[in-house]
Design a protein around this nucleic acid. Structure first.
Lengths: 212, 212
DNA sequence: AAGTTAAGCGTGGTCAGACCACTTTTTTAA
DNA sequence: TTAAAAAAGTGGTCTGACCACGCTTAACTT
């Protein structure tokens, strides 16, 4: 008996890989049309139902859009679909929530540092405007503020991961940063004080709390 | 013609709602078993393939776990599944190689700090063993070292994301840390010197490089 | 009697084909 | 020429069949 067989991958997962490969090698972009389900089924030599399970997965993730009678189209990634669904199953697990929040805050801290050299006058004005804006929803303020900041890291992967975590965190009531935090951060930016960014986060939020 | 028909909901989406209702009214909890696909198909008067599309969606979201030959079980929600899939499509862009490395190193730095309070004698011996081991493949050494470290952060989401990025980084160039780095880090751990972990990383790798 | 092996059953996994519903294209009829 | 009808192409759904896997139970061996 083998020690540890890799758990057999399901067909639809394989199809997922194939479709990804197809998109890549054909340079498909948002708006472009994918081959029909029957065509894919034949080309990949897989049952149509398996192809559909893969497409359903992609649809759920917001990667594609299916139009009855027309076809399946690539779209710009928007995670709202899956988040919407998850909200239905409010199966909040405490550990997961904490894990999620911690990773998200960790990324925000690093984003704040990475964005530092890239912020121009326009960005500073925008950030100040957001941090001064009195919103009823403080969560919305937080989102806007860090969305801009994360974008300015100029790291697309970081943007994607943060957006995803942010979407998931919408469904749970997350704790936001203190009201004064944003202004504190802006002051450090204005003073070109890079070194104090990390300490500000460590002092403010629960990320990277040292021993005890 | 109606102004705005709500786009006809697909059957599998309806099934999703039904299953949710079932879970709720039967007070099912993580670990509990759902009715079999055939049973659900019959009870809800829907084709089995539609039931499967719904279950596939739930599986993708990490809400259930299916075991071949056994059944379908409720599980505590974990977003990892979707993260994995998404990454598959997001990371296919060639321009993301540098982005990938940076995010990975960033996570490793934070993991080194988060793991700090959780390391026991056994862990220390293990880490020392790895860092002293002379391997032909320095990449392998790096992987083993940080795999343990990341696990000790006690954050499952962080583990998953790191593993994923690590998996992808296998195929691309292997900018590893200097040979002495691991021992330097071990010394900080031994000396219970939390404060110097961050500076060690900033000095060593390209993460979070301040202006200029 | 105890332990081992094999058969059966229930389950998820996959496939093929049929038909429906919707949209676009082509053909037909006025 | 133009409007209506038919055809073609696509996603949506259902059914039934069969395979692969894990467990339970019966049968067999010792």
């Amino acid at each position: 008996m083998a020690v540890s067989m890799s758990p057999k991958q399901k067909v639809y997962q394989g199809v997922l890989l194939e479709i990804r490969k197809f998109i890549e090698s054909n340079q498909l972009e948002p708006g472009d049309k994918l081959p029909s389900e029957r065509e894919l089924s034949e080309k990949l030599k897989r049952g149509r139902s398996s192809v559909r399970e893969a497409l359903r997965a992609m649809e759920l993730l917001g990667l594609i859009e299916t139009k009855h009678g027309e076809g399946t189209f690539l779209r710009t990634y928007r995670p709202y679909k899956s988040v919407e669904l998850l909200a239905l199953f409010i199966l909040q697990d405490h550990n997961t929530r904490e894990d999620l929040l911690l990773v998200k805050q960790l990324l925000e801290k690093e984003a704040a540092k990475l964005a530092f050299p890239h912020l121009d006058g326009q960005d500073m004005r925008e950030l100040n405007k957001i941090s001064n804006h009195t919103m009823t929803e403080t969560m919305e303020k937080h989102r806007e503020f860090f969305h801009l900041l994360v974008k300015r890291t100029d790291n697309q992967l970081l943007v994607k991961i943060w957006q995803l975590l942010d979407e998931f965190s919408r469904t749970i009531h997350s704790e936001h940063y203190p009201m004064g935090f944003y202004k504190d951060l802006m002051e450090l930016y204005s003073a070109r004080n890079f070194a104090e960014i990390e300490p500000l986060f460590e002092k403010t939020v629960s990320v990277s709390t040292p021993i005890k």
